[in-house]
């Protein structure tokens, strides 16, 4: 059950599903549905950006959203943790369910939601603080003051983001001094520090060089053992490499969703085929 804001019941920030042993999410195991949208329409003022999107996202796997610019994939991604709430004039109809609970329920604490559904952006956004303070930021906002516990969280988050070995001796250095690839992994570590269940990634490697891109892709592969990952990417090969399932959006519609291998070798819809083979878009 997703934590909701009620007078009777305090909100738990802990993941509701305990972390499990790593397993390859490329297997055929039937996974529980972590996120689901039902007949989701989304509007920027009078402009309808999403049309009747019904999609299920299985837990502990990577789902990629692809589609041409303006197709609605980033809008859809931001809907999954209510990031669109901060844009004036937006509204939606339909449901977005996290483990079966509507995230737009008025009782839902949006801050708690965004802790469980973290986000990594296209451009790395380190705070102008030390590496340590960047990672400790979220837990501190959540009220954690104990330094030894904070240190543990910082270390484990940086390890999970495959950045620990590179920065362990300069935790007090400014995060702004890190390379672009390191900054992006720092942002992933920062998102992990609040112990999310779901990581939303909007073009996480588009500004990185090939080596840094590979590191981020490797990281995504490692993280999916424990997290549900949703990634928006313009890089078709990246979607094919890192994801278990791929959803193709076009003009605000979900055209096709299915196992990545299938979608990239024998897509069912002609629009999908035309897009992924570069015949339009």
């Amino acid at each position: 059950m997703f934590p909701t804001m009620t007078a009777e019941k305090p909100i738990s920030l802990k993941p509701q599903v305990p972390l499990r042993e790593p397993s390859a999410a490329t297997d055929d195991v039937q996974r529980a549905i972590k996120l689901e949208t039902r007949h989701l329409d989304f509007y920027y003022g009078n402009n309808q950006a999403l049309h009747d999107i019904s999609l299920q996202i299985p837990e502990r796997s990577v789902t990629a959203f692809i589609g041409p610019s303006g197709c609605g994939k980033s809008t859809f991604l931001r809907t999954l943790n209510r990031m669109n709430d901060i844009i004036e004039g937006t509204r939606h109809t339909g449901d977005v369910l996290l483990e079966g609970t509507d995230i737009f329920d008025p009782r839902v604490d949006v801050v708690a939601l965004r802790k469980r559904v973290g986000m990594v952006f296209q451009k790395s956004t380190p705070f102008p603080k030390s590496i340590f303070d960047n990672i400790a930021y979220g837990p501190r906002v959540a009220g954690l003051k104990d330094l030894s516990r904070l240190t543990e969280i910082v270390e484990s988050s940086l390890k999970r983001a495959a950045l620990w070995d590179e920065v362990k001796d300069r935790m007090r250095d400014s995060a702004m001094a890190l390379s672009g690839g390191q900054q992006q992994r720092l942002c992933i570590a920062r998102a992990l520090a609040t112990e999310p269940d779901v990581l939303l990634m909007d073009e996480p490697a588009s500004a990185l060089d090939p080596a840094s891109t590979t590191r981020v892709e490797d990281l995504i592969f490692d993280l999916k053992s424990n997290y549900t990952i949703v990634i928006v990417t313009h890089n078709m090969q990246q979607a094919a490499r890192v994801s278990d399932r791929t959803a193709f959006f076009y003009q605000g519609h979900l055209v096709e969703v299915g196992p990545t291998q299938e979608l990239f070798t024998r897509p069912k819809e002609k629009q999908t085929e035309d897009y992924i083979t570069g015949r339009f878009g």
Binding site: Q237, T265, I276
Partner: peptide
């Protein structure tokens, strides 16, 4: 070109 779909096939 890393072709996909019909091009790969």
């Amino acid at each position: 070109y890393q072709p996909v779909a019909i091009d790969l096939r």
